Simulated scan of single mutants.
Amino acid sequence: MTTVTSPLSGASIGLAAVPDPVFSGAMVGPGTAVDPVREPSVAVAPVDGIVVSLHPHAFVVVDAEGHGVLTHLGIDTVQLNGEGFELLVNKGDTVRRGDFVVRWNPAEVEAAGKSPVCPVVALEATAEALSDVSESGDVSAGAPLFTWK
């Protein structure tokens, strides 16, 4: 069992509220989303594991149980071509929950016309595999978002 924690401080809003049909329809996988505070911040690792995919706008950490957790920093932020994002780790690095991964500013993303909402998704999982999914209320970076059985 894996507890997936919030990579950011903000408000959990649930995937259904994400302004992107791929995420809101859980096509990538089940999970939740965080509407981040609008200030410069650092996205942190939501689980202990290995960074298997790393882009300025998104990263995947796979834990010891083989669970891949995607953190996507904003919606359509790939179109920013890395502008405003600073990678703090490398693909293949081992990270601990709470380690800094990407520095960014959600307010700048919003000013660029993109949504700063951040889906946190359990890859290759079923909705039934998740429990205690946070879909409302304030969350701090490192607070539990969901449990993956």
Rank of each mutant, 00 (worst) to 15 (best):
M1F: 10
T3C: 02
T3R: 02
T5Y: 07
S6D: 03
L8V: 03
L8E: 00
S9Q: 08
S9H: 06
G10M: 02
A11Q: 13
S12Q: 05
L15K: 00
A16R: 15
V18S: 06
V18Q: 05
P19G: 07
D20I: 00
P21C: 07
V22H: 01
S24V: 01
G25I: 06
M27K: 08
V28I: 14
V28A: 15
P30Q: 10
G31E: 04
G31S: 06
T32G: 06
T32H: 05
V34L: 00
V34P: 02
D35C: 04
D35K: 02
P36T: 12
P36G: 12
P36N: 12
R38V: 06
R38N: 08
E39L: 11
E39Q: 14
P40T: 09
P40K: 13
S41F: 05
A43S: 14
V44D: 02
V47Q: 08
G49S: 08
G49F: 12
G49D: 14
I50E: 15
S53P: 02
L54C: 09
L54K: 09
H55R: 14
H55Y: 13
H55M: 13
H57I: 09
A58Q: 00
F59W: 03
F59P: 00
V60Q: 07
V62R: 14
D63Y: 08
D63N: 14
E65R: 15
G66K: 08
H72Y: 10
H72S: 11
L73C: 10
G74C: 14
G74H: 08
I75L: 10
D76L: 10
D76F: 10
D76G: 13
V78I: 14
Q79R: 15
L80N: 11
N81G: 07
G82C: 08
G92D: 12
D93A: 12
V95P: 09
R96C: 06
R96N: 09
R97D: 05
D99M: 08
F100H: 15
V101D: 05
V102A: 09
V102D: 04
R103F: 03
W104E: 07
N105F: 06
N105S: 15
A107H: 10
A107G: 06
E108F: 07
V109Y: 02
E110P: 07
A111F: 07
A112S: 06
G113C: 09
P119V: 00
L123V: 00
E124S: 10
E124F: 04
A125D: 01
A125I: 00
T126N: 11
T126C: 01
A127C: 01
E128F: 00
E128I: 00
D132P: 01
D132W: 00
V133S: 10
V133G: 09
S134M: 05
S134R: 15
S134E: 08
E135V: 15
S136A: 15
S136I: 04
D138Y: 06
V139A: 07
V139D: 06
A141F: 06
A143T: 02
F146P: 11
T147I: 13
T147N: 10
W148T: 12
K149Q: 13
